[in-house]
């Protein structure tokens, strides 16, 4: 049975929140089963008719180590180890299709370049800008970072409010964690209100059992893996030998 429909309300400034926006994420959480291959989530709700909304989906923040290639003689080789702290594993920026947003993103405090503010890169001797650009490029190639223009659409306003719908597909390579759905309301070209929803991605069933066994009982897991391989190899070998005798 699929995850139940969830209803999450903006937690920003309780007195005004209800006036600004109410949103719903469907499904409200994501289960990673053995057959997970990415999943679409739908975000819908209403905002005041005179406001725009930008949605960021991000998380979990972690410390990652990468190899940085450089030129050694005629060859491109791994030259430095680079450590990036406070980098979200996934980042998606969902924008409304009613106008071009590129020039405003920095001022609104959203977008990939806004992540620079929190990220620490070590060693400090390396160029921050170069590494950050390469990092974004790497994440984009892994389909883990994306800017989605026209991802949010509005319906005609009614009673001073407009209905919005947006969708985002969680990519096939995803880690179980608490993700954040951050909404920013825009009024007269300025960020008006930011709110944060938690969105849980969790492993279930066999996927969860395997990961827990691998991490908590490594030796048993290793021995079982070898036993499985030996038995499978032997069975296939015997099947083929049996086939040969006919």
């Amino acid at each position: 049975m699929g995850p139940a429909l969830g209803l999450l309300f903006l937690i920003a400034g309780l007195a005004v929140a209800a006036d600004l926006a109410d949103l719903e994420i469907n499904p409200s959480y994501l289960d990673i089963t053995c057959f997970y291959s990415g999943q679409k989530i739908k975000i819908s709700g209403t905002v005041p008719a005179d406001r725009d909304i930008i949605i960021e989906i991000k998380g979990p923040e972690r410390k990652d180590t990468f190899n940085m290639k450089g030129r050694i003689g005629p060859f491109w080789m791994n030259r430095d180890k680079v450590e990036l702290e406070h980098v979200p594993f996934l980042y998606a920026l969902l924008l409304p299709g009613n106008r071009k947003w590129d020039s405003q993103l920095d001022a609104l405090g959203v977008g990939m370049h806004n992540l620079e503010k929190n990220i620490t890169i070590r060693p400090k001797t390396l160029s921050f800008d170069t590494i950050f650009e390469q990092f974004i490029q790497l994440k984009r190639s892994q389909r883990l970072y994306a800017k989605l223009d026209d991802a949010i659409s509005y319906s005609p306003e009614s009673k001073g409010r407009k209905h919005l719908t947006a969708s985002f597909t969680f990519p096939p390579s995803i880690v179980p964690a608490e993700y954040k759905v951050v909404t920013t309301l825009i009024s007269n070209g300025k960020a008006d209100e930011k709110s944060v929803f938690n969105f849980t991605v969790k492993e279930v069933g066999l996927t969860k059992t395997i990961r827990e066994l691998a991490h908590q009982r490594g030796l048993i897991y290793g021995l079982l893996s070898v036993a499985m391989a030996l038995i499978s190899g032997a069975i296939i070998g015997i099947i083929f030998i049996g086939g040969d005798t006919h």
């Binding site: 395997i210 691998a214 490594g218 290793g222 893996s225 499985m228 391989a229």
Partner: peptide, 20 residues
Amino acid sequence: TILQAYFNQTVDVFLALLLL
């Protein structure tokens, strides 16, 4: 396989099973 599973937890049994 045993050393990698024990020290690094990098053996993916699903991946190995499909490949094998």
